[in-house]
Design a protein around this nucleic acid. Structure first.
Lengths: 207, 207
DNA sequence: TCAATAATCACCTGAAAGGGGGATTTTAAA
DNA sequence: TTTAAAATCCCCCTTTCAGGTGATTATTGA
């Protein structure tokens, strides 16, 4: 018997999935939580093998909650749930122990298949999400340059409108050093000037 | 009798709202569409007074669909529906004839109240959405500077990484002119350099 | 222990951006 | 028709940025 628990802050979504699953013979409704806190508190008394978890929730989001839950209850399988098709989040979710990812605009058939697959220890991706992940992994180096902490810090300050001398004063560095970091940022993002740098960073949600 | 029709690309949402409304005495389920096209095609044969409409859908989005539907069927009331709490979209939706806006993480009570309110010709906003709208309208002038077509064009080219001389060559202008527009952009956005300009524009979804 | 990376600092050069100051001409609205 | 806004153009000067080249010092992982 598959016991499904859901964590989502949208009543409509909880109701919808409940409605889709309630007539399934091999699936039992284990309950729901509307946020990460109540999930952590409430879940102790329940047993569930599969958790459907919204990636974006107020307070602690699904990505973090996923890690905590997997640590406390290694036996459960977590299926990410979202309206978005965001390669970045899917990857983070997987790194934190999720067994798969499904979009809320998936069909009932796809939802059932996903639940069964992860319950059997498999990995499932929504068609589009799967493609997004592939796309992401293929081009991750080009799209998401790995930034050092210092580079992230300086990128943020550049976006705020600070000039090299101002940044240097602010974080107690030589203007030369700040300039080096800035040039490395341009190189890592494969862009020629600040405008393109900030636009790209904004698009990749790094700001 | 209130006849509710829903346009949303998420089966879970359709199912959830259907489930929440099916036991309501004065509400009748008029059907659903999964995208703007099928809504436009399918809706002719149906009568409905209230349409719940997702603002973000593949293809034509709710904002556009709202305008089209209101033109074809002026008698219906449209209630925007979204996971987000985005003042900008709410405003656009309202400008296109919507009677209100509700978040998908609203309670059943709030959903019912919203449906009844718009059916009676009123205007309804989800608590948070309402605040967002107020916040938006209060600060809209400061946050959303009015840009001339030329300025928008040049802003876009700056974001692409083109320099003044390159832009000048591209759109057959003097570099001086491009520079003037650039300086006007900085002034209108109340920022001191390109980095802050692009960040602000990206945050306001102008890119 | 060795290699790789991050982080730091430095200089030179030319190009671009930013802060001022003006000016004329279209175009659209009042 | 007058006015306002947009769009166009020009020049001054200073600062900042970007490209190139080079270096030393942690820190960390293999």
């Amino acid at each position: 018997m598959i016991r499904v628990f859901i964590v989502d802050d949208h009543p409509v979504v909880i109701e919808g999935i409940h409605s889709l699953l309630k007539n399934e013979k091999d699936i039992e409704w284990a309950g729901h939580a509307m946020n990460a806190q109540s999930c952590l508190g409430f879940f102790v008394n329940h047993t569930s093998n599969v958790i459907l978890m919204d990636i974006s929730m107020p307070g602690m989001d699904g990505v973090e909650l996923c890690a905590v839950m997997k640590e406390k209850y290694p036996g459960i399988f977590i299926l990410g749930l979202s309206t978005f098709n965001q390669g970045l989040y899917i990857k983070k979710m997987m790194e934190n122990g999720a067994s798969g990812y499904i979009l809320k605009n998936s069909s009932k058939q796809e939802l059932l298949k996903a639940i069964h697959t992860v319950h059997d220890g498999g990995i499932f991706f929504s068609g589009e999400a799967g493609e997004a992940l592939m796309e992401y992994q293929k081009s991750s180096k080009a799209q998401l340059p790995e930034l050092s902490p210092r580079e992230k810090e300086i990128l943020g300050l550049i976006a705020e409108g600070y000039t090299n001398p101002q940044i240097a004063e602010k974080i107690f560095l030589s203007p030369f050093t700040v300039d080096s970091h800035r040039k490395n940022l341009l190189a890592k993002f494969c862009v020629k000037n600040t405008a393109a740098l900030i636009k790209t960073a904004a698009q990749l949600q790094l700001l």
